[in-house]
Structures are given as C-alpha cells and as structure tokens.
C-alpha cells in the first residue's frame, strides 16, 4: 500500500496498465483503488478509454502452434543417462544393486583396517614367539612342541 497516491499517479496507472486494477502493480493497487472510488468522476473518461482498448486487445486473434512443435522440442531434450548394458552390466546390477561404488568402498575400508591393525599390532612389541603361542592356543595346542609331535 502506497500512502502518497495521487490523481496523476492513478491516471498513469490507467494509461500504462489499462482499466482493470488487477493488472496494476501489486504495491499500488489498493491505494489507487481507494482514490479511484473516492473520486470516481475524475477518472471516468480515462477509465472508459482504457476499458475500450482492453476489450479490443482481449479479442486479438492468435494462431495456435502446429501440433508437432512440442514433439520436435522434446526430441531435442536431454536423454536419461544410459544404463550400464551388456553382460557385465547385468552381473554388476545383480551383485551390486547399490552400484559398484559400494564394493570399491568396502575394499578400501578393508585395506585401511588392515594397515591400521598391522601397525597397532607391531607397536605392542609382541614378539614372534608370543604370537605363535597365541596361534597354537587358538587350535587347542599348548605350544609349538605339539606341532613338532604332530609332524
């Protein structure tokens, strides 16, 4: 809403946008309407002229575009990114429904874990013999001597 709406400005709006307030700028419409209804005689002639021209413009004839135009436009539209095709594509989709990035990521994670684990193990200072002992215990054998006896 504009506080300083004037008669001249309302006449400018009519001259530029026509007689229908719906076509006037949003921020001036209500102020102009108030002035218009308060002093309707002052704007009657301008409104009459503008309304007649509005009606003529509304009756302007316009040819329709050919029915093929939309098809031609869509024929040039970008296509969907092509699906991975062929035997590899089929297998890949079957084995890795989330995409091939997942197994690649898993392989990388395994590598990192192995490196970190190996480094941590080495940094504990556990010697070869202790490691062997733990290994034998995991198989229910007391020591490396049992391996000798098995041989």
């Amino acid at each position: 809403m504009v506080d300083d709406m004037t008669k001249d400005r309302v006449l400018e709006l009519i001259a530029a946008y026509g007689a229908e307030p719906g076509g006037w700028p949003d921020d001036e419409r209500e102020s102009a309407r108030v002035l218009l209804s308060a002093e309707s005689d002052a704007f009657a002639a301008a409104l009459e002229d503008a309304r007649a021209l509005d009606q003529m413009l509304a009756r302007e004839e316009m040819p329709a575009p050919s029915p093929e135009l939309a098809e031609k436009i869509l024929a040039n539209a970008p296509a969907t990114k092509p699906e991975r095709a062929g035997l590899f594509g089929g297998l890949s989709a079957l084995l890795f429904p989330q995409g091939v990035r997942w197994p690649a990521g898993a392989a990388l994670a395994s590598l990192v874990m192995g490196l970190v684990g190996g480094y941590a193990y080495a940094s504990t200072g556990i010697g070869y013999d202790q490691a062997d002992s733990a290994y034998f215990s995991a198989f229910g054998l007391d020591s490396g001597a049992d391996w000798v006896s098995l041989e």
Partner: peptide, 21 residues
C-alpha cells in the same frame, strides 16, 4: 528435466511453450 526425466520435460514444455510461441 535436466536429468532426462521425460515427464518433467513434457510438463515444462506444455506449461511454457504456449507463452513463448
């Protein structure tokens, strides 16, 4: 539409082609 969705492309054309023409 940019990703190749035909329905979105058709909707964009149907909505805007008349005014452009």
């Amino acid at each position: 539409a940019a990703g190749g969705d035909r329905a979105a492309q058709a909707a964009l054309v149907n909505r805007n082609m008349p005014i452009v023409f």
